[in-house]
Design a protein around this nucleic acid. Structure first.
Lengths: 115, 115
DNA sequence: ATCATATTCAACCTTTTGGTTGAATATTAC
DNA sequence: GTAATATTCAACCAAAAGGTTGAATATGAT
């Protein structure tokens, strides 16, 4: 079975510029599918598909009101994405620190040999 | 012409768990292609392709030393990814703040009517 | 009831992704 | 030199992404 985890879905959703633009639009509040599709130079159907990918990632929620579907933004999944990236940064900095320590230690040894 | 921007490449690279694992490995320091491929249950060629996608995103750099290719981690492109996410958060909070203000103003009006 | 609007579903197409295997290339070891 | 090692390149394949068009569905307006 092919298992897709939440982070995969989130990152995949964020990888496309149209979807990022849709998200950005939704930070300003709810909007219907047609409203969201309007600024884009592609079919309504194409946008509808992008929305589905955003929903799969749970970045977007849908509230039906008659024939209108109101989409809203859910920032929650961004936490995991942000956390992952920050962890990378920390891991990298830990490594740089260790390298610095090592170099400092080498310097000390060199000094010892000199005196 | 299909234009892919840096953020697209970064997010696409991060969307796959194998590639995220490779990056994580590289925070601990340089490694050869074979070393990187070793823990994964897939062909060396498959890993080689993943590395190419990481290189396209400039998250990984390559240093050739004879027949060995040493890969190293470049955290720089993560900045843009992180910044994008943070901007979303800010935009969202701005909106929440405005909603709160609005509700507070409504309360004031209600009070006014009462007294 | 009819017509228009909002949206999805289905079928199709092309490109990209993620994987495979087998051959080519370059370097190192003997 | 010959053999082993490290890596890519090329061809192939299946599945997913990103788009299209046309039909179906559901709701709202007249």
């Amino acid at each position: 079975m092919i298992m897709q985890n939440a982070l995969d879905h989130t990152m995949t959703a964020l990888a496309d510029p149209t979807r990022r633009a849709i998200l950005q639009r939704l930070t300003k509040g709810e909007a219907r599918v047609t409203e969201i599709a309007d600024p884009f130079d592609m079919s309504l159907n194409a946008v509808s598909k992008h929305i589905k990918i955003l929903e799969r990632a749970k970045l977007v929620r849908r509230r039906r009101a008659g024939r209108d579907h109101f989409l809203s933004y859910n920032p929650k999944p961004l936490d995991a994405a942000s956390t992952w990236i920050e962890k990378q940064r920390v891991a990298w900095n830990v490594r740089l620190d260790r390298l610095e320590q090592l170099l400092a230690a080498e310097d000390e040894k060199a000094k010892g040999r000199k005196s």
